[in-house]
Design a protein around this nucleic acid. Sequence first.
DNA 1: CTGTTAGCGCCTTCAC
DNA 2: GTGAAGGCGCTAACAG
Lengths: 334, 334
Amino acid sequence: MTVTIYDVAREAGVSMATVSRVVNNNPNVKPQTRKKVFEAIERLGYRPNAVARGLASKKTTTVGVVIPDISNSIFAEVARGIEDIANMYHYNIILCNADKKKEKEIRVINTLLEKQVDGLLFMGGAVTDEHVQAFKTANVPIVLCATTDEQGTIPSVDIDHEAAAFDAVNALIQKGHRAIAMISGTLQDPANGYARFQGYKRALEQAGIAYDESLVRVGNYRYESGIEAMKYFLELKDTPTAVFSATDEMAIGAIHAIQDSGAKVPDDISVISVDNSRMASMVRPQLSTVAQPMYDIGAVSMRLLTKLMKKENVDDPKVVLPHEYISRQSVQPV
Amino acid sequence: MTVTIYDVAREAGVSMATVSRVVNNNPNVKPQTRKKVFEAIERLGYRPNAVARGLASKKTTTVGVVIPDISNSIFAEVARGIEDIANMYHYNIILCNADKKKEKEIRVINTLLEKQVDGLLFMGGAVTDEHVQAFKTANVPIVLCATTDEQGTIPSVDIDHEAAAFDAVNALIQKGHRAIAMISGTLQDPANGYARFQGYKRALEQAGIAYDESLVRVGNYRYESGIEAMKYFLELKDTPTAVFSATDEMAIGAIHAIQDSGAKVPDDISVISVDNSRMASMVRPQLSTVAQPMYDIGAVSMRLLTKLMKKENVDDPKVVLPHEYISRQSVQPV
DNA sequence: CTGTTAGCGCCTTCAC
DNA sequence: GTGAAGGCGCTAACAG
């Protein structure tokens, strides 16, 4: 039924070892024999069994990717970056959604490790001790992608979320805004949540603006929650003149909530956010936002992982990619 | 270094076979011995090697997924449906982007097959003879996801793209529109391209409206191409009163192009499309569109694949999921 | 340059 | 209910 390396060897009149060599591009084969083998392969329709190869060589050329949610455009973009580079280095990826649930994350990490992936890319919520524990039992490299661990002991690639948020809010302050509301992500989320909130606070503080709790609403990253949060702000006696959203999608919700109320963006209220997803320029007015290089985060982390897997030494295992403020149409001086 | 089933057997004072039985939940093990084995596993931190298991059992509990582009929200949604169901049945997925390029598709199909996936989900451009050829050499089940083959010989799950487009255009016609433009996808693409274009033509024909070539522009599915196409229509001496876009994203581009020109949607021009991606309700006015159940297409196709892999018999290997017109705010009577 | 020989870690009859 | 033994298909020394 299935044709094996042994069949090819017999057909070509050589040994298994030789077939293995040509299949693996080992130069130590006479061109003639190589040709014979290729012909036999062709004739028999031989297809190498990667599982057997993996068992024998202890390499699967497969990496595990745990991601919060592939249907979230931000992560999908990162995933594309990962896959492109993986592909370039002849790796395949096993993708697992874990929705930032610790339990699910630990579970998939383990099944990925059982599958003998050569490396692991972890994109998730908080990196807890349990995670670190699970990573330790792996004897393959791990890199955190779009997150970091507290202790800074695990290789990672991410942007500086706190600074990105700071820059966004600061852009508002530079335009004269002082009543600046924030639509935050959940504070349990270290990157998109907590760090961005901290950046907001620091920017206010530096400008001598008192932090006002009633100017902060926590959303769930979705469009609707942006709308809800904004509606709340709109009903305040002192409506803010600007709002900073932790993510684009909620920002778009905010823009629409403002517009639906009859007010104008940015004339009445300015809106700014962090992400620069493709949607940012698919709204009117186009959204001003601090760009986070999603694709690159994926690509760079996969590249880093390949180096780790090849045991090449890397200078800095903690890479922080630059963010950049993109000024479009949703912000104007107060 | 790595602890194997043999180590566990020795530690527990039983044979490898017994360990294998408890790991695989084989009931023929005395509770006592089962307990002993579990303890040994715990103590040693044993983790089954899925590669070895795969080689011995000829099952990898892994399925291959070839997808055009995971960063496209439509496909990302499908992928989420796939992964959720895969997960439910304890399968993992290897994801490969192939950008609807035939060559790349064939290549990844082959590497997926080399990796001994238990089944394959194919989401791509046209299904050519070469594809069918590649599928034949696989001795695992394949299901087409969000596409179909001409001959209808391969299991698949999709919507009726032609009918969906027809319904959309017909909704316009029912509102009295006659000058209806179309922003199409590339005609080489059987599903989103050709079929939807055919639906457009059939709707016109049935209403006795002459087909006008100048009212059709081919886009590349992206927002910008929707803008471009619409700009073209806007400059026609007889501007259409409605436009049908093959996809949401181009439709949103069209809406913005109209708005940027100073006209209003739907007052001056109505816009309708097919997809109902999340973005459809994230525009003002909200987009009226024929919904295509992306998540379900993924889920159902994965479910079908599990049946095929278990050699259960399926009544109908060609499933066509229903589509549905969602009326929002972008269409109004002429 | 090429062949021989052991495994890789596990499953799976087949006996007991 | 449990153990022994033979592969699964391939790679990797080690000879020659």
